[in-house]
Design a protein around this nucleic acid. Structure first.
Lengths: 192, 192
DNA sequence: AAATATCTGAAACAAGTGTTTCAAAATTTA
DNA sequence: TAAATTTTGAAACACTTGTTTCAGATATTT
């Protein structure tokens, strides 16, 4: 019996996410957000909620999108070790080509330590990556594609652990090659 | 012919640093700062300057203190490889025992990408760590303590690169053991 | 001790913050 | 088409922000 919401909530959240991604949670104002989303704050508060809720939806959107992309990218690859290598290489590509560094990592360092709700989402995202990669590492060990004498759990942690540093490194040095060299060495270490 | 500043500027900056360390640049207000420093904002603006300048001094204080500590800790160690191991192990200790994660890393992800002045200080800090560790790696290779066939430059990047991930990991999982295991593996990788 | 120069404290500043209000517009259903 | 109900836009809200003001307190130098 009444009109519907005019804007697409998914699209709006995606636009909000872009702002948070660039400016961080505390660096973003509600006016930044409503301007980028193209909606009035009254509509925003009537539908999604306040700034914090919008941030929660933004980082959920970010992590969910990333999870889907990872699955889609790795699914067609038959060899576990090749999938692991692809995962590492495409991380390097993203790190050295996207305009902002990973929203999840930025959020971890800015607010995860003091915001439980955020912490949970970030942890879920990390657990997803862990499980995805751990499955591949286990298979690779079984198949004898990884011969280094280490348990899968530790190797999975060890591989994932590189990405944060590469992001940090790229912000500071903006040097693709040194990151590529680290990635090459990491892959060699696993492969041996 | 007149009175002197009542407060110790070094002590005041150190107290400001603590606040920035906990809350980040954008999450910290001038009232947070003046309260923690125990001085009035007029005194602050008369001596140090505005919020940004205070932040600059805070991160300089942080990085300089850290540099001195690193030098002091590694100086007495004769064996290069032992010094490298000590460097890694004490990083693990700091990461898993300090209440906040590294101010330099937090700052890198929060503001370094958009603040040139900050970026420079952070880069100088990273270059210092790089040079310190690179010297050790080169000596360790010469002495045959490191036999892995990689150039010192890449190995230095590779070692340093782990710290950021460990910080991130500890915020999310608060698990010391998994970090220790990664550190042990890293040391083993270098040593072979 | 007096003159001098500077620092300090409290208050005030204008602009910016996240959020709410509400009349008018809009779209749905009957 | 008319009634009903919700969304929207602009303005306003109360509070916080970074910063400045300035009278009076304070310490130095002569």
């Amino acid at each position: 019996m009444a009109r519907n919401v005019e804007f697409d909530e998914q699209v709006a959240v995606s636009k909000a996410m872009d702002v948070f991604w660039r400016k961080g949670y505390n660096g973003t104002t509600m006016r930044d957000l409503t301007e980028a989303m193209g909606i009035n704050s009254s509509s925003l508060y009537n539908t999604i909620g306040d700034k914090h809720e919008l941030f929660i939806r933004s980082i959920k959107h970010y992590t969910e999108t990333r999870m889907k992309e990872a699955l889609k990218q790795l699914e067609p690859i038959k060899s576990p070790i090749k999938a692991i290598e692809k995962f590492i290489q495409s991380s390097v590509y993203v790190i050295t080509n996207e305009p902002n560094s990973c929203l999840a990592i930025k959020t971890t360092f800015e607010v995860a330590a003091t915001d439980e709700q955020v912490q949970k989402i970030i942890k879920a995202d990390n657990d997803f990556t862990y499980n995805l990669l751990n499955g591949l590492v286990e298979k690779a060990i079984q198949k004898g594609e990884i011969t280094v004498s280490q348990d899968a759990a530790m190797l999975t942690d060890y591989i994932i652990n590189h990405f944060s540093g590469w992001h940090e490194f790229f912000i500071i040095h903006k040097d693709k090659n040194r990151i590529k060299n680290m990635a090459t060495f990491l892959i060699k270490q696993i492969n041996q």
